[in-house]
């Protein structure tokens, strides 16, 4: 075990994946000498060279599109989109090409492309640097979307995403990049070295986890909101409410089984994410909980998230994003319904 930041854990995970497979190639803007604007690829250019850590032209569609062609010849491109709000020039390549090639080719072509995206807010940034676009991609079949909340998951899941034969959108909670935690580097290594490692890795990164057990309310979160959900659990406990926290980890597939099992125990569900609630992951989860656990519910499923406005100027982001008070308010409402 060693202590790492979440960003450092991704860096270590990338390094391990590149050591494991010479076909893994990193591509993105400023990821080489600079090490990326968040320094997630720091040191990799120096150690692996410019053919393995490629500074691309400044064109997101070009990054994803050329990665598709490289993957067709057996490479595993791991792309960095510099910021969430800059992924949209590549939206067509991701949704009409990357996501659909396996289907279009009847399984003959697999595209093991990983797209790393620093996402979500709370960093006081200018426009297009704080968004949470996961729902826009989750609607597209053929993509997997995961988001780690801890350094351990970041270390494991980046390698599992790279090992997966499917395209994966790997959403990195940028405000959590500097959170520290203990990381065991041996477990994912033995998983990937074993026979069927890629399948096991894909299955594991697609499952959520119970981040804290509780019995009164299930608070579901992922990525940057997991820490908030745990703070909510602490605060609620002080008031006598026992909160169970589910860290989804995966948005596509959405591990609703874990949520439904928890909902059947607690009878109350609050979903938290930074993305707008309208048509978001929480809406999908609420529908599934209603379909599968309706008669166990003591209260309607509530959502806490961003509003149906553009991401506002950073002086407003603490009002726009879910915070402790807004989630506690939702917990109170499901408890008193």
């Amino acid at each position: 075990m060693s202590t790492m930041t979440l960003a450092g854990a991704i860096n270590r995970g990338l390094r391990a994946a590149m050591d494991r497979d010479p076909k893994v190639v990193l591509m993105g803007e400023d990821i080489g000498q600079l090490g990326g604007v968040f320094r997630v690829t720091d040191g990799l250019w120096k150690d692996f060279g410019p053919d393995r850590v490629v500074d691309t032209p400044l064109a997101e569609s070009g990054i994803v599109g050329t990665a598709i062609g490289m993957a067709m010849r057996g490479y595993t491109p791991v792309l960095e989109i510099q910021f969430d709000g800059f992924i949209f020039p590549a939206y067509n390549q991701i949704t009409t090409q990357l996501a659909k090639m396996h289907y279009r080719s009847h399984g003959a072509i697999t595209l093991p492309v990983v797209i790393r995206v620093p996402y979500s807010g709370h960093i006081g940034a200018v426009e297009h640097h704080s968004e949470s676009p996961e729902a826009l991609f989750a609607h597209t079949a053929g993509l997997r979307i995961v988001s780690p909340a801890t350094p351990q998951d970041a270390y494991d899941m980046i390698q599992q995403a790279i090992a997966s034969p499917d395209p994966v959108l790997f959403l990195e909670p940028k405000a959590r990049y500097w959170d520290k935690g203990e990381v065991d580097e041996s477990r994912v290594a033995s998983q990937l070295d074993a026979d069927g490692g890629a399948s096991a890795a894909t299955a594991e990164m697609s499952r959520g986890r119970i981040a804290r057990e509780g019995k009164d309310v299930t608070v579901v979160a992922y990525g940057p909101s997991v820490r908030l959900a745990l703070q909510v659990a602490d605060a609620a406990a002080a008031e006598g409410t026992s909160v169970e926290v589910v860290d989804l980890r995966s948005i596509s597939p959405l591990d609703s089984d874990t949520v439904v099992r928890s909902a059947k125990r607690t009878g109350r569900v609050v979903v938290v994410h930074e993305a707008p609630t309208a048509f978001g992951a929480g809406a999908e989860l609420a529908a599934r909980v209603m379909e599968q656990a309706f008669f166990h519910l003591h209260a309607p499923v509530l959502r806490v998230g961003g509003f149906h406005t553009p991401y506002p100027g950073s002086k407003f982001e603490h009002d726009y994003l879910p915070n402790l008070d807004r989630v506690l308010d939702a917990v109170d409402r499901v408890m008193t319904h």
């Binding site: 053919d51 050329t66 598709i68 062609g69 490289m70 067709m72 390549q93 090409q97």
Partner: peptide, 18 residues
């Protein structure tokens, strides 16, 4: 999708070179 494959073609060509 008009022109989308031009990028796949370029990536494929770069991989042939590699």
């Amino acid at each position: 999708v008009i022109g989308a494959h031009s990028l796949h073609a370029t990536g494929y060509a770069l991989a042939m070179d590699r």
